[in-house]
Every structure is written in structure tokens, then in C-alpha cells.
Amino acid sequence: MTNDTITATITIPAPAETVFDVLADPTTHAAIDGTGWVREALDGEPMTRTGQIFRIAMYHDNHPAKNYEMANKVVAFDRPDTIAWEPGQDMAHDGNLTFGGWIWRYDLRDETPSESHVTLTYDWSAVPPELREHIPFPPFDPAHLENSLKHLSDLAAARVTS
């Protein structure tokens, strides 16, 4: 863990391609998330390219609105090796997105034909000082990453067996 990055790793009993498919499907993100903040995908479309925006309904007790929406921009899409997104919002409700400077990134590689090594990185190094004054980073316990990877593993393993 550096000052602006935390990571967690896991070996998942599924090929990297299967794990990537789970991650590229925003409808699985609520099941992957361990905080209970992620509610549901609002677009229903899988991620297919860098620059794509996908929207997620969220809930957090400390958010002024409690229920809110994140518009995530895909910043890395290299099947089946890397997928990453930067959360943002339409703060002015005018259709223009602003991004906070934190990124969720998954790096995958096959260990064997039936197992993959996955590293999850949460990077907030680009968060501006004025936002850091209002939000402590990371805004969750670092164990959240390990919990998320366990949930991801369960989802990917279930796809292999079905």
C-alpha cells in the first residue's frame, strides 16, 4: 500500500477470460462490491471499449442525497488482461461529467488453463486537494478489496460450473 494506492490479489478458479467477462458486466458489480454502496447497473450494457460510460445506482449514508448515481468512464480495456474505470458524476445535472480522480483497476493473468491471478488496485493519486478535504481516502476499509475479490471469485467460479 502506498499513500495513494491500495491493492489486493487472489487466485480465482476460472480462466482470466471468464473473470474479465464478469468484470465487464456492470450488472454483476453490486454482487462484487463488499460495501453495500453499489446498487444496480442503470445501462445494462457490458463494457466493450475504452471511453465507454456506464452508470451505476449507489447508496451511502454519508452522501448528501443517500441515493445517487455514478457515471463510470472505462479508462483501460485490454481483454482479458486489464479493465479499469474512473467514477464520476453529473454534479450540475447538465449532462457534463466530472471525475474525482480515483480509479478501480483489475489486472488479470492466467495461472493455469483453469485458474487466474487477479490484482485489484484502487488508486486515488489524481484526486485533487479540494476533494480530499471533504472525502477521506480510501473511503472504506482496505479489507474491502479482499472481500470484493472473494465475491468476484465466487461469481467467476459459478460461471465455469454452469
Rank of each mutant, 00 (worst) to 15 (best):
D94N: 07
A143N: 12
G88T: 14
P113L: 00
T98E: 13
P142D: 03
E69N: 09
Y122E: 11
N147A: 08
Y106N: 03
F140V: 03
D78Y: 06
Y106V: 02
I103V: 10
F137V: 00
E130R: 11
Y106G: 01
E86Q: 08
D123Q: 05
L145D: 06
T82S: 04
G51V: 08
A71P: 09
D94W: 03
D110A: 13
A143F: 09
H60V: 14
I83E: 02
G88V: 12
F137Q: 00
N62P: 02
T112E: 00
L131S: 05
P64Y: 12
T50I: 12
V118L: 08
H151T: 04
H60Y: 15
L120F: 11
V118K: 06
L131K: 04
F54Q: 11
I53D: 14
N62T: 13
T50N: 12
A126C: 07
F54W: 15
S148E: 13
T50K: 14
A126T: 09
I83T: 03
H63G: 03
G95A: 01
G88N: 14
P87F: 06
P128F: 05
E130P: 09
F77A: 07
Y68R: 04
P139L: 03
P80T: 02
V127R: 05
I103R: 05
N67I: 10
D141G: 07
T119A: 07
